[in-house]
Design a binder for these strands. Structure first.
Lengths: 356, 356
DNA sequence: CTGTTAGCGCATTCAA
DNA sequence: TTGAATGCGCTAACAG
């Protein structure tokens, strides 16, 4: 079944293709009578204009790219849904790209998105400087940075108040009486992780505690499962996200410490999962043996044992806001810098006063 | 900065556009010397062929559509990631569409996907007969049904063994000694839900228990929060998925029963969340007051209180398989019907022998 | 071994 | 108030 073209409609309606085009796009006046003829023909033929052909001539595809780390990461699925919902209202479609934090994958996706002539881009960059991203900016493709800063790139950023959230989390622990507070961080190239570390540091400094380097743990997703197999049997995770096992392994040394910390601040939800499994495997009880507070809430958190105390961030809104900003950029509306979205401490039961 | 075109490359390399096209696509022999000239020009100009223009002439876009209910549903995010990973290996991109189970949204998305000339479609249909979907099939767009059957549509289905999984879950409860076993189902238009109900029914029948209609609960997502506001204060869910509150409300009558069931089989993960919140709000303890088994596992499940006993389904593989089937369809390879993917009972601690 | 040219399906300028 | 003709950037005959 061959595709119905605009010319088929024109012939059936007894008009020119120009007229058909104009009634479809409402781009110049057409006499009501002929307009109806055209509309009827369209209906009868079930005509659907080709977005491809249209894109070629208008130089716009009504498509945006969304480059994130991993759609299976609950944080990003909520964000993605926010982007999608907002952008759809304006007739745009989204191409999803999972980088898994690999700069090379990021680059490859950007190449493809450019080839596909996207009208705009929302990206949570891996953080590694990207020549291609700069070129896209130079080619005047509207870009919005999502969640993470990208030094050297002149694009608006939509993020949450990471530093403040981390500060509040840490201060909460301090107020409960904790002194030895560990922090579990992910990749340092990600500005979000740095911001959260700085919030932690500030709170420790403000309390006169300072940062004990032995309590700062970095989870490295490249540190694969195999390397520690002999030491600790790895739990089976369904997700193929490397951040979770990385956290699991990174924590082993910390938990081996004679002078174990009494509390830990975990800087994202994927690492929280690894942390909980590590505690469980050692038979450590949270919060009795160790208090736990983590960044990012979700619907399951209150059902955990114990219910998780978290810093909640407005994930869905983050996505919506980024998309809405991109719309403005794409329609040449003025855009001013945005304040970070507020976060909120949600106290449940995974933190308690330290023993003794 | 104007876009670099194939002609710019041709001029710079001192050849025709045809030659440039052929070295890019390796579609006819080009003398090594000229080939290098072209490659150099491409490199120097940072030339990126326009996928749009190419699509117009080749009548293929290297894009597929993925129509699901909600990317924020953990089941579908895993599936989506599977589809994405597989399809990317073959150079295809994915446009995601969330129907939220609304036939109207489904229709609108299908319209847009058709306009965008997708090369193939993976769809978990709402189940409502779709004229447009049939037309797409008639237009010979390769289609793979994901997870759910669509009567009247001649397209291969990739699903899991829902009936068997539900059977095993129910039999497990029966073997524990339960007699009054409730089932919580979602929309009846979704074949998956029906299959699971049938598995439940079969197990009950085989055990000589039969199905007690008062223990069959249907969660209806259209039954919005407002309608029961006065009766029960709704919990605040972060997700905007309606299935979760729907389950929460649907369960109220069941839990009000004088002769409450001693166990419940919940037919998907979104409803499990609502169920757990409903139990929690009433101060009902699982598994002491009521045993719970549900369909679909995830990484958080073992960390719950209690750790959830579930029927695990291979979500990621489901997506991969669907995509791989679509690839075959799109490349005219022969395709034979696929057996449902196997599921697995994962026993944790949310089920116990009934009291007394 | 390479170049010329005709469209792909549409929006849009210029004429009428 | 409408039509004819041009070209978006590319691939694929056809020609040489």
């Amino acid at each position: 079944m061959a595709r119905v073209r605009i010319q088929d409609v024109a012939e059936r309606a007894g008009v020119s293709t120009a007229t058909v085009s104009h009634v479809i796009n409402e781009t110049r006046f057409v006499r009501e009578e002929t307009r109806l003829k055209v509309l009827t023909a369209i209906e009868e033929l079930q005509y659907q204009p080709s977005a491809i052909a249209r894109g070629l001539v208008t130089n716009s595809t009504q498509t945006i790219g969304l480059v994130i780390s991993d759609i299976a990461n609950p944080f990003f699925t909520a964000v993605a849904r926010g982007v999608e919902d907002e952008i759809n209202q304006y007739g745009y479609h989204t191409i999803f790209c999972n980088t898994d934090e690999a700069p090379q994958r990021e680059d490859e996706y950007l190449r493809l998105l450019f080839a596909r002539q996207i009208d705009g881009l929302v990206i949570a960059p891996t953080g590694v400087p990207s020549e291609r991203l700069n070129r896209m900016a130079a080619a005047e493709i509207p870009i919005v940075l999502l969640d993470r800063q990208m030094p050297g790139l002149d694009a608006p950023l939509v993020n949450v108040d990471n530093k403040h959230g981390a500060y509040e989390a840490t201060r909460y622990l301090i107020e409960l009486g904790h002194r030895r507070i560990a922090v579990l961080m992910g990749l340092e190239t990600i500005s979000t992780q740095l911001d959260r570390f700085n919030g932690y540091k500030q709170a420790m400094d403000d309390a006169g505690l300072g940062v004990d380097d032995s309590l700062v743990v970095h989870a490295d997703p490249r540190f694969s499962t195999n390397q520690l197999n002999q030491v600790v049997p790895p739990p089976n995770f369904l997700t193929n996200n490397q951040m979770t096992p990385a956290a699991f392994y990174a924590l082993q040394a910390l938990l081996d410490l004679k002078d174990r910390p009494s509390a830990i601040f975990v800087a994202n939800n994927q690492m929280t999962l690894g942390t909980l499994h590590a505690l469980k495997q050692r038979g450590l009880c949270c919060p009795d043996d160790i208090s736990l507070i983590s960044f990012d809430d979700h619907d399951w958190a209150p059902l955990f044992s114990p219910p998780l105390t978290v810093v909640r961030q407005p994930t869905y809104e983050l996505g919506k806001t980024a998309a809405s900003l991109l719309i403005k950029l794409m329609t040449q509306q003025p855009v001013e810098p945005l304040a970070p979205l507020p976060v909120e401490l949600v106290v449940r039961q995974s933190c308690t006063r330290p023993a003794r």
